[in-house]
């Protein structure tokens, strides 16, 4: 069935802006992005919104709906009460360009600053070999669609602009974890994770995991395991001693 939904949409740019009220038609089964498109088509032709796939796969339509970081295309209108005012704002951690579109360059800069994959020597038969069980952990992380909702919700940068310089954010700490767990990667990334990318800033409060549309267990499977690896390298006197006397190199 069709009804008229009450929306509040943030309109503006870096100079200023505010929430504006709209009433837009909603049909059965529609998602918030459909409604934004209808709003654009019928009442606000200049409304800026970024989207591509409308299927939760491209990671473009990230925004905040009733204060929670979500994908516009994966949030059903059916989740809300028909009388409820649905508030839609751009992500509040990144600079706004216009309306719902933000400048997410912070994330691309962090991505570029992470040391890339450094392959080990090939095996005696001239091939790199690894087994499925060796890569299963990182395959979960590869589901990432780079929507940056986790980066948006992470209070380390969301609430502290100055931390952006020193903190890579959950998405890219997860990338470091992925490479550090990689059986063919030859770099020890534990020290830089802590010292250059700010792993110690994360207080494992799990908001990144809560908002990830791919359901990646970012905190449990990437950040905490990476913290434990860092402890091996930097804080645990016994493992440190073990490595010093050459018994066990980083596995």
């Amino acid at each position: 069935m069709t009804y008229q939904a009450k929306l509040r949409v943030w309109r503006g740019d870096a100079e200023g802006g505010g929430l504006r009220d709209y009433t837009v038609e909603v049909n059965e089964g529609e998602v918030v992005l459909d409604i934004i498109h209808r709003l654009q088509a019928t009442q606000a032709g200049d409304l800026a919104v970024r989207w591509n796939c409308k299927a939760g796969k491209c990671g473009s339509c990230s925004a905040e709906i009733n204060g929670r970081p979500r994908l516009l295309c994966l949030t059903r209108m059916g989740d809300f009460d028909e009388n409820e005012v649905v508030t839609i704002t751009p992500m509040r951690t990144f600079p706004v360009i216009r309306d719902l579109v933000t400048d997410v360059s912070y994330n691309y800069e962090k991505a570029a600053s992470i040391p890339g994959f450094v392959p080990r020597e090939k095996g005696p038969d001239g091939v790199h070999r690894m087994q499925q069980v060796d890569v299963e952990r990182s395959q979960e992380f590869r589901k990432c669609i780079e929507c940056f909702l986790c980066q948006d919700v992470c209070h380390v940068v969301r609430d502290h602009e100055d931390n952006k310089k020193v903190y890579a954010g959950p998405r890219f700490l997860m990338r470091i974890a992925e490479l550090d767990m990689h059986p063919l990667d030859n770099l020890d990334r534990r020290k830089v994770a802590q010292e250059n990318f700010g792993l110690g800033m994360c207080n494992i409060t799990k908001c990144c995991s809560e908002v990830c549309p791919e359901g990646i267990h970012i905190t449990d499977n990437a950040l905490i395991p990476l913290k434990e690896r860092v402890v091996d390298r930097k804080y645990d006197p016994l493992t440190w001693l073990g490595a010093k006397i050459g018994r066990r190199p980083h596995p």
């Binding site: 943030w10 870096a14 751009p90 951690t93 990144f94 706004v96 969301r158 502290h160």
Partner: peptide, 11 residues
């Protein structure tokens, strides 16, 4: 600071 840092959507 925080979500009120310069450049971010003013809310």
């Amino acid at each position: 600071t925080g979500t009120g840092a310069p450049g971010r959507a003013r809310i």
